[in-house]
């Protein structure tokens, strides 16, 4: 039971990151491999703000604002000039951005892990702690669910949300509806990066250390989750993320613990063999 809660909680972190991958893929038709590093920037933003203000709330707000702006900036400076270029060029650029952000963090903060600060602490909640569930796991799970519901409502019930769905399905037809595609892509990067900031915050609740490569492993795991769920599909990213989180925690609690990473990624191969579009992915018919 506790393992399940831990797994769901880790899974919602993966899901939040996977949402960023999948939304950007759906709308901008590119794999943003720098997405994981946005998490890392969010973590450093929390550390720096915390050192300056000693207020976790201020730190969280700062992380969300900085990540959102960074996401928009990266898209404008690195990806937008390549609109219409070959997908490979965009992919390589994304990897370049990833290394750039990691290198920058290393330059500024050094390569050693740094503790985020003693003010970064969740209060003990006796009722659930006595059951063996950590406050971090509970907070992550509850907030994760709220954020995912909010995002789903935003996508399905607002004008901007339906424009996002339209652009992801048929960019040309969306333009003919009067949708400003550049603006929608910017909004997508902003939302994806804000979600990454949340993921960074939850990550720090579990492991309160920052380092330049902090985003790499959760990033690649969440990307795997997005592909397992069916890249481009929003519910798919949520399902894939939660699934990987639960599997990871159960593996770690079993004798198979040393093989956890191998099992996580083998699952990807297995699912793609059976269902190449991912669990909730749609079959895309190429028009001739």
């Amino acid at each position: 039971m506790i393992t399940l809660i831990d797994g769901l909680s880790l899974g919602s972190i993966y899901a939040l990151i996977a949402l960023g991958y999948t939304m950007v893929y759906g709308i901008a038709k590119m794999l943003n491999f720098a997405h994981g590093d946005i998490i890392m920037v969010g973590a450093y933003a929390i550390m720096v703000t915390l050192a300056a203000t000693v207020s976790p709330i201020a730190a969280i707000v700062a992380a969300i604002v900085i990540c959102t702006i960074l996401g928009i900036l990266v898209e404008k400076l690195a990806y937008k000039p390549l609109r219409g270029a070959s997908p490979l060029a965009v992919l390589i650029t994304a990897i370049g951005v990833s290394y750039f952000l990691q290198g920058l963090a290393q330059l500024v903060f050094g390569s050693q892990p740094k503790p985020v600060g003693s003010a970064w602490k969740l209060p003990a909640i006796e009722a659930i702690n006595s059951l063996g569930i950590t406050t971090a796991a509970a907070v992550t799970l509850v907030c994760g669910i709220i954020i995912m519901i909010a995002l789903t409502l935003f996508i399905n019930c607002t004008r901007t949300g339906s424009a996002m769905l339209a652009v992801s399905e048929d960019r040309g037809a969306a333009i003919l509806m009067g949708v400003n595609v550049n603006k929608i892509i910017s909004i997508t990067f902003a939302i994806g990066s804000a979600l990454a900031a949340f993921a960074g915050m939850f990550y720090l609740f579990q492991i309160p250390n920052t380092e330049p490569t902090l985003g790499a492993m959760p990033g690649i795991t969440a990307f795997t989750a997005a592909v397992i769920g069916g890249i481009g599909s929003i519910p798919g990213a949520m399902v894939g993320g939660v699934l990987l989180g639960v599997i990871e925690k159960f593996c770690l609690a079993s004798p198979l613990a040393p093989y956890t990473v191998a099992i996580k990624f083998s699952l990807l191969i297995l699912i793609l063999l059976v269902k190449p579009t991912g669990l909730l992915g749609k079959v895309v018919r190429e028009k001739v």
């Binding site: 769905l165 399905e169 009067g178």
Partner: peptide, 19 residues
């Protein structure tokens, strides 16, 4: 035609009024 295949008829019409 290029209608949005995955959206409902009503959502398609609403997108027509996007502006």
């Amino acid at each position: 035609r290029r209608v949005f295949q995955q959206l409902s008829v009503l959502d398609n019409l609403k997108l027509g009024a996007y502006t």
